[in-house]
Design a protein around this nucleic acid. Sequence first.
DNA 1: GTGTGGGCATAATGCCGACAA
DNA 2: TTGTCGGCATTATGCCCACAC
Lengths: 649, 649
Amino acid sequence: MITFMDSKEKPQDTERCLDSQLWHACAGSMIQMPPVNSKVYYFPQGHAEHAADVVEFRDRRIPAWVPCRVVTVKFMADVDTDEVYARIRLVPVTGSGEFGSFEDEDSGLNRSSDGQVGSVKPTSFAKTLTQSDANNGGGFSVPRYCAETIFPRLDYSADPPVQTILAKDVHGETWKFRHIYRGTPRRHLLTTGWSTFVNHKKLVAGDSIVFLRAENGDLCVGIRRAKRGIGGGQETTSGWNPGGGNCVVPYGGYSSFIRNSNSGGAGGNSMEKVKVEPGLVVQAVKHATSGQAFEVVFYPRASTPEFCVKASLVKNAMQIRWSPGMRFKMPFETEDSSRISWFMGTISSVQVADPIRWPDSPWRLLQVTWDEPDLLQNVKRVNPWLVELVSTMPAIHMSPFSPPRKKCRPSQHPDYPMESQIPIPALCGPHVHLFGGPTTGPFGYQLPENLNVHHPASMQGARHTRYGLSLSDIQLNSGFYPNPMKHSHSSPSVNKPAQSEPVSCLLSIGNATTSSKEPETPKASRFVLFGQPILTEQQISQTGSVSGLGRESDLNLETGHCKVFMESEDVGRTLDLSLLDSYEELCGKLANMFKTENSIMLNRVQYWDATGTLKRIGDEPFGEFTKTARRLTILTDSTGDNNVPAVDS
Amino acid sequence: MITFMDSKEKPQDTERCLDSQLWHACAGSMIQMPPVNSKVYYFPQGHAEHAADVVEFRDRRIPAWVPCRVVTVKFMADVDTDEVYARIRLVPVTGSGEFGSFEDEDSGLNRSSDGQVGSVKPTSFAKTLTQSDANNGGGFSVPRYCAETIFPRLDYSADPPVQTILAKDVHGETWKFRHIYRGTPRRHLLTTGWSTFVNHKKLVAGDSIVFLRAENGDLCVGIRRAKRGIGGGQETTSGWNPGGGNCVVPYGGYSSFIRNSNSGGAGGNSMEKVKVEPGLVVQAVKHATSGQAFEVVFYPRASTPEFCVKASLVKNAMQIRWSPGMRFKMPFETEDSSRISWFMGTISSVQVADPIRWPDSPWRLLQVTWDEPDLLQNVKRVNPWLVELVSTMPAIHMSPFSPPRKKCRPSQHPDYPMESQIPIPALCGPHVHLFGGPTTGPFGYQLPENLNVHHPASMQGARHTRYGLSLSDIQLNSGFYPNPMKHSHSSPSVNKPAQSEPVSCLLSIGNATTSSKEPETPKASRFVLFGQPILTEQQISQTGSVSGLGRESDLNLETGHCKVFMESEDVGRTLDLSLLDSYEELCGKLANMFKTENSIMLNRVQYWDATGTLKRIGDEPFGEFTKTARRLTILTDSTGDNNVPAVDS
DNA sequence: GTGTGGGCATAATGCCGACAA
DNA sequence: TTGTCGGCATTATGCCCACAC
């Protein structure tokens, strides 16, 4: 037996489960584990992608999905690397009678897997280690926000204020740090104990540390290792796509340690554990198809999507009649995995990914093109339940930047000229639903026929790729993305699609008010993006919610508002734009900062209408520039005009 | 596909092969790799034992052996641990026509796998690290022999004599050490660079370091990690023995780092790489049986016997008509893996190990009992080609200590009273030779019927164990073995079997002459073992060769000589017996020394006949006491009387 | 607000002969 | 011959402030 744990308990499986909140803090905000007892669809295809190597199934008839009930979810962490993973025990839900009820149950509920309904996000804070933090200098510069909201209260009356803080890691081991508030200007530091921690965990600059205050008050500490570059890294081909094999996706491996994990058995290493063994996948599928309970291991930081997906999510997604041309957005973790970015895209075709083995599978059903193709060039196929349609929202897709006619005529899309009206290959033929016939299957979708489908050049040869959940997985070596509008911000209308309306935005940068002090009045100098091609239609996300700060409704959005999208799990380095007044200056500044930074927070983003009047909405939002895209995701409602009442901050 | 490398080249398999001499120095003197192009038998059973976990074969019909030709042998080393392993590429030799020639070829040749015929053993030296060597003190005490024969010549005219030595490790990485000759009294030391090496390689006291002077003059350095104790370690059951499962053999794992390697995929770690993945075994067998070339990985320091065995060896072994009662000796590596010890045993039964799956397999065909059962209690079944018969040598087995009648009536053996004349189970039934019928199979052996077989108590329940090649694998925690003859060396004849003749031996200990200086005249005081039960029949090995010093014929052995068996790869700590003159004193001395030593060299062993006259044979042989057995293996020819001409040293 | 570098106190490392086994 | 110990020189660590950005 190939180390597969079946229903018999293995006595030595005494690994400890860790606090689910710490686990989630380490896993990242993208990860939502299915609750115990909830219904999920288990996708063998996705499980196979999650494996360390290509999985070869012996059986020819493997269902594309297996409806299951979650028996247990164990939150685990790798003993060596602290890498978090989950052990999910599933029991297949069999019988056609149960099937309908299976689909209907549990939709809409939003419990997390620790059983809490709508529990408050615990106070956690992540920081990417700087050179100084990771150096042998031995100190850690604690961002004020972290020290004041996560760490135990410090008695500032002492001189200097010092305390010893204890933090439990994922294994329950306690680490002791000296927390001191000193220096001019005053700042929070961890000194004694820090370098021991860094050495023991083998942290380097770029890795992230997560501090979390658990509900019982305990301070916890987790780590998220940076995804090192792809140079010399492993190449992974899909195997399950008959036409595939030479389309390579860099995934987050620790390439500096990578060596061959071929037949030697000497391959693989302790730093490279974000994959499961192929044999386990085969075994899991065997059990799943024979109705036996089984266990899967899921590494949330592996660059493959979850393969145990909440049933309601899948069901809802498959009730949509997906068709090419549809506009959607999809969340990704930012490269430094501290925040989430939404990317806009268009469905180019709807076809099963592997029509030979899984002709009825919704897995990676959607072939997409991105508004920012450079960044997501390796993400070609996505799961329907991971995207959020935006084009079908009536009030939204009528924005002046995306006239409705474009939805129906995607071939006019400026990025995709009328070159490729290729008929859909025959692969998209009849569906075989293994669990009941086509009418009783859980998914009501039908593959479209005779559609105008975009076939980007890269689709030739039916190549297939994995896709990642994190930007750093997708394009690790992307530099500062060549700016298509470097030329002439003095002639803003040049090279602009006719239907793109000018958009202006003021980024007024001041002091963040996460500090307990009263914020200073921002030096509200203006940086005008007006007319810059960066705000072409493709670069403007058109809807979204402002996470962490409140809901749309709280922000008193009005017609014509532009707002900078933001997601703030922690606070990165701030770029003060107050002294800038040209786009070139901004670019130079950013390029310089991005030598050391992965992302930059634009604090106190403010909104500006076309008249140039300052308007501020909400309380201390953060804008975000990502290194790779130099992208400013703009959320806007879409009635067309930018004339909004001037509101000063 | 489960990471199995088939005939297609994997482009990223760019792992470097290392110098075969360094590889062999690290692998230990027991390991003899089959030469390229030679014929071997591949034993799936043995390969399965070599796996990290129990291997479950899907096929019901797996041949017990597959004749193969060695295509390539790559000498590799683990990137993390420096553990050496070999990648052996085999191509099955199929076709019954070829079969006869396969058997007949290549027997008798003794080429090593690097293609050299009878190449001189390269100068290498192994030392087990002391506490001081491994401590952070930062220095390494270089044994004089090593410094003078392995290291580059040191200029003694300088004061102090210093040089920088460069040593390449198994990966070709060069390490720099400062070699100095200083202190009072003068000694060789490695200082600067040593602690870096120790830290980087994570060496601890008990690990061994191997220095080797390659043929091109380069100095090389390898490591052999100590087999840490069994406490908390993994238990491994055989799986392939239907009745087995609860007989546990400690094998050399780094138990202090061990964790579960169950379904999580998070198990296993970089320090625990002396096993191959079960899936690879399955794949290898699949290829082997379908006639395709395949590759196996062999870890010489794993505690399982080689499963690619030189064809001539197997063939020769299987031409012997094995039967219970036969006496044999078998080599094992000493606990500190610096030398080889031969152990004596008796075949208790001849029966296939797994009659269900491999009814015709010679693998572990011999069930044995040992003269020193305490030490080898877990070694119950051995491969015929690994033992050397001693009872069939006519002049030998007639020794006064082993009268010939005992061979035929082993039940009279003092250790095995007439308790267990159990008939052989039906398992030993007809053989199925998959490769040709019973008459065309490569092995002419027949399983014996109706024999008087010893069934030691431990055999009840048909338990099965692995066996190890190294003493430390077999009984890691054995202390100083209780001495059966502690009582009365003043009454030498007490408790002695009637047929045991007194044997005397003088151990005359002086200065070893590995130094370049002229050896001092040994203080040849005498230690008389005469009449001690330590020399009962079971404790006397009866034949053998003196490795490293010359062959039997070179030693001018004469009738009645006793000689102390020895094998010296390096020089351990010396016990000066010159001041001892009682057995008790020796025992006390040994017990004391064994608190820190694993084995003790008895330098300048000399031979003594029954008259008490000194006789010295050969040039500076070394005697050996092993910690666990307090055993003095005595080789003797066996015409019965000990009256030999007195020859002084 | 926080990253980085230099100064400096302190701790760890590692080289040494002295002993002893 | 070589393992271990205490002494002591040298190096490394890590805490601190000053000064950016």
